[in-house]
Simulated assay, not measured.
Amino acid sequence: MHAESDERGDVVVPTTVKSTGELTEEPPERALGSRAPGFIKGSKTLHMSWQVGVFVVGLAVVGVGVVLLPLPGPGWLIIFGGMAIWATEFVWAQLVLRWTRRKVTEAAQKALDPKVRRRNIILTTVGLVIMAVLAGIYLWKFGFVMPWKIDQ
């Protein structure tokens, strides 16, 4: 992908045409690379130490997110937070976050499409009706009795 840079060093994303026909300009993307302060980048040893520290902190945050995936908690949110920490230093993490942001934006745009919204509402309604029918059959057959017996 070829893009020009503006005076701030940000990448200027070309204007796109939405499905509605209107022109929109996407926000500029930041340049790839380390976002460490200048005095840290000046020393190779200090910069390497900084990168190791960022990697360890990001790894800890991603690890907590992975642990929270099967448990109650915001696992994916924490994992993306760890990826954002990594993205302050590592180009590969910046590219992963750009790809993820692009896919989430596409999914949000697709979800706002009237046809997709109508389909989702219909599927949700059908699912709720099926659940209500199953609950009604259960109550008709067994009454309001729990399916397990608790001896008191």
Rank of each mutant, 00 (worst) to 15 (best):
G82L: 04
Q94K: 14
V13Q: 15
I150Q: 11
L95M: 10
R118D: 07
F90L: 07
P74A: 15
P74N: 14
F80K: 10
F80V: 06
L97W: 04
S19A: 10
V64L: 05
G38Y: 08
V116K: 09
G82N: 05
D10N: 15
W50D: 05
G82V: 07
Q109F: 10
F55K: 04
A108T: 12
G75S: 11
V62I: 04
W76C: 09
E22D: 08
K149G: 08
K110F: 12
K149D: 12
S43I: 07
R8P: 09
V52R: 07
V126M: 01
V96T: 14
V96K: 14
A87V: 01
A60E: 05
K44E: 10
P114A: 08
Q109V: 11
G33S: 06
K18G: 00
Q51M: 05
I79M: 06
L77N: 11
T16H: 01
I130A: 00
Q94N: 13
Q51E: 01
N120C: 02
L32F: 15
V57T: 04
V67R: 02
G42A: 15
V133H: 00
I150W: 08
P114L: 05
V96G: 12
D151I: 05
R35G: 09
W76Y: 13
R117Y: 12
L95G: 01
F90A: 01
K103C: 07
A93L: 11
I130Q: 00
K18R: 01
E106S: 12
G82H: 06
I121Q: 09
R101I: 09
T125Y: 01
V104M: 14
K44L: 11
I137A: 01
G21V: 08
I121T: 12
R117E: 14
G63A: 00
